[in-house]
Nucleic acid binder design. Structure first.
Length: 282
DNA sequence: CCGTTCCTGGAT
DNA sequence: ATCCAGGAACGG
């Protein structure tokens, strides 16, 4: 489940490797993962265009190509972006893999979009340098950005008083970047249960929550993200943050703080793990 | 605001 | 053979 730390790990690697290069060929093997916004755009327009930069907001990547062509990439649950030198023979295996849906040929570098479950997608659109990005602007502040602040979050808490805390943290229009792994980790460190309604959450709670979110996410970025199941970085290697998880995926095991047995519960439609002793309902 | 849908592979 | 994993979008 690529969340902010996994997507950022991929972004920084690919930005260093690919920005400045020209996409000589673009091969789309599955049309249904490729969404085209305007009628006058088509996938082949990526060919011959220079990639200017790769940016990110939350879990969304944006590839900015020359002459205002934008490509949003979301990895869903099992999406991978895999980078290979063309001389690397291992690229053949990925090339022929049945879940490889798109291939960028940057000359000496190849980039594969591979996604078993196909919850991921790409979206081609026209970038307007004068207007705010139509996809990024729908998202709440990135969890690592300074515009994630107490006043903003408090105002959203008031608007979403009936939402459960876990659903609040997972909502990408409120904060962008958190998925199921990091919400469970943040809630554990904050000592709060996932099912608490937002009207029970104080401004003080939010003030405590913000630095916890930032530190958990920052640490996970430093460790190259979490490889719980499917996640691999652009070099097809695992991250390390699974070694630092306190609760996610550990129902039935003991709490690292107090030793109580960790509980599993379904909250906001997601499996959630928490410590019944350290995490309070308020 | 919550539940359902999409999708495939791995576990039971 | 059945269930489970879940990000985002949609409908009730």
């Amino acid at each position: 489940m690529p969340e902010l730390p996994e997507v950022e790990t991929i972004r920084s690697y690919l930005d260093a490797k690919l920005s400045g290069l020209t996409a000589e060929r673009f091969i789309l093997k599955r049309e249904d993962i490729f969404i085209i916004d305007q009628d006058d755009l088509k996938a082949s327009m990526l060919e011959g265009r220079k990639l200017l930069s790769i940016s990110r907001k939350g879990k969304f990547l944006r590839l900015a190509f020359a002459e205002g062509l934008g490509l949003i990439i979301h990895l869903g649950m099992t999406g991978k972006l895999l980078y290979f030198d063309k001389t690397d023979e291992a690229s053949q295996l990925i090339q022929e893999n049945k879940h490889t849906h798109a291939i960028f040929d940057f000359g000496n570098s190849l980039l594969f979009f591979n996604d078993v479950r196909r919850f991921g997608f790409m979206r081609l659109y026209r970038l307007n340098s004068h207007a705010s990005d139509p996809y990024f602007s729908r998202l709440g502040p990135d969890a690592l950005n300074d515009d994630l602040n107490l006043d903003d979050l408090y105002e959203k808490k008031i608007r979403h008083a009936k939402l459960k805390l876990k659903a609040f943290l997972l909502d990408q229009s409120i904060i962008s970047g958190l998925g199921n792994i990091y919400t469970d980790e943040v809630l554990f460190k904050a000592g709060l249960r996932p099912g608490i309604r937002m009207n029970r959450i104080s401004r003080k709670d939010l003030a405590r929550l913000i630095p916890i979110i930032k530190s958990v996410i920052r640490h996970a970025v430093e460790e190259g993200g979490t490889s719980f199941r499917d996640y691999r970085n652009a070099s097809n290697l695992k991250g390390n943050y699974q070694n630092f998880l306190a609760v996610y995926g550990k129902a039935g095991q003991s709490c690292p703080i107090c030793g109580s047995e960790l509980c599993a519960e379904r909250v906001a439609g997601r499996s959630s793990t928490y410590c019944p002793c350290c995490q309070k309902n308020k």
